[in-house]
Simulated assay, not measured.
Amino acid sequence: MLYQITFYEDRNFGGRSYDCSSDCADFSPYLSRCNSCRVESGCFMVYDRPNYMGNQYFMRRGEYPDYSRMGMFENIRSCRMIPMHRGQFRMRIYEREQFGGQMNEMMDDCDSIMDRYRMSDCQSCNVMDGHWLMYEQPHYRGRMMYMRPGEYRSFRDMGYSNMRWMSMRRIMDSC
C-alpha cells in the first residue's frame, strides 16, 4: 500500500508544503512550522516534537485544515507511518511496571480497563500482534500513545510518568 501525507506550514493548506510517504523524524529541514495536512492514503501518527516525541495524534485519510480547531496541538514536528495489519491482534497489559501486578490479555478493543478487567491502571504492556492506540481516559478519549509490536516495560521511561492508560483500540486495516 502507498502511504502519502502532505504537510503545510500554514492553516488551510497554505504556505510551503512537504510530501511524505514514510517516517520522518524531523520536519525542520523542510518546513519552519506545520499547521495543516492532507492524508491521501494510509494512516500516520504525528508528533508535536522531533524524533517521535511529545503529544501524539492519529491521522487517517482526510483533510486537517486547522489542528487547533480539533483540540490538538498546533505544530507537528515528526510523523510515523502505521503499517497495515490484517492478522490477529494480541496485547498483554499489566497493572504495574516491569510486567508486574495483574495481567490481562486483549485481542479486541477495550473502552475501559476498569470496567472490563477491574484494573485501575496500565503501567506496562507486551504487544505481540498488531498495532494499537492507548488512551488516557475511558471510551477512547484524551491523549493517545501508539503501540507497535514489542515490550514496553515502563511508560514512565517513555516520558509518560503521570499518565494513566484507561482504554485501548486496535488500528485496523481500514485506513
Rank of each mutant, 00 (worst) to 15 (best):
R33M: 01
S36G: 05
S36H: 05
R38Y: 06
G42A: 01
C43W: 03
F44W: 07
M45Q: 07
M45S: 07
V46Q: 03
V46H: 01
Y47L: 03
Y47Q: 04
D48N: 12
R49N: 12
P50T: 08
N51V: 02
N51K: 06
Y52P: 02
Y52C: 03
N55Y: 03
N55T: 03
Y57S: 09
Y57E: 12
M59K: 14
R61N: 02
G62I: 09
Y64S: 01
Y64D: 08
P65L: 02
P65I: 07
D66G: 10
D66P: 10
R69G: 13
M70D: 10
M70C: 06
G71H: 07
G71C: 10
G71E: 05
F73M: 00
E74T: 15
N75A: 03
I76D: 01
I76S: 03
R77F: 00
R77W: 01
S78Y: 01
C79K: 03
C79I: 12
R80C: 03
R80N: 03
R80T: 07
M81V: 01
M81K: 05
I82C: 01
I82A: 00
M84W: 01
R86E: 08
G87E: 02
Q88G: 08
F89V: 07
F89A: 05
R90W: 10
R90M: 14
R90G: 10
R90N: 12
R90P: 13
M91P: 11
R92Q: 11
I93D: 04
I93V: 15
I93M: 06
Y94K: 04
Y94F: 15
Y94Q: 02
E95P: 13
R96K: 15
E97M: 13
E97R: 13
E97H: 08
E97V: 13
F99Q: 02
G101V: 06
Q102E: 09
Q102S: 11
M103I: 11
N104H: 15
E105L: 09
E105W: 08
M106I: 14
M106P: 09
M107P: 13
D108G: 13
D109C: 06
D109Y: 03
D109H: 08
C110G: 04
D111L: 09
D111K: 13
D111M: 12
S112P: 09
S112K: 05
I113F: 08
I113M: 08
I113H: 09
M114W: 09
D115W: 00
D115E: 10
R116C: 10
Y117P: 09
R118P: 06
M119K: 07
M119I: 02
S120D: 14
S120N: 15
D121W: 04
D121H: 07
Q123L: 14
Q123P: 08
S124Y: 11
C125V: 12
C125N: 07
C125Y: 11
N126Y: 15
M128V: 14
D129N: 00
D129E: 09
G130Q: 07
G130T: 11
H131I: 00
H131P: 00
W132N: 14
L133Q: 05
L133W: 00
M134K: 10
Y135V: 13
E136R: 15
E136T: 15
E136S: 14
P138W: 11
H139E: 11
H139N: 14
H139G: 04
R141S: 12
R141I: 08
R141N: 12
G142M: 09
G142Q: 08
G142K: 10
R143T: 00
R143P: 00
M144P: 10
M144Q: 14
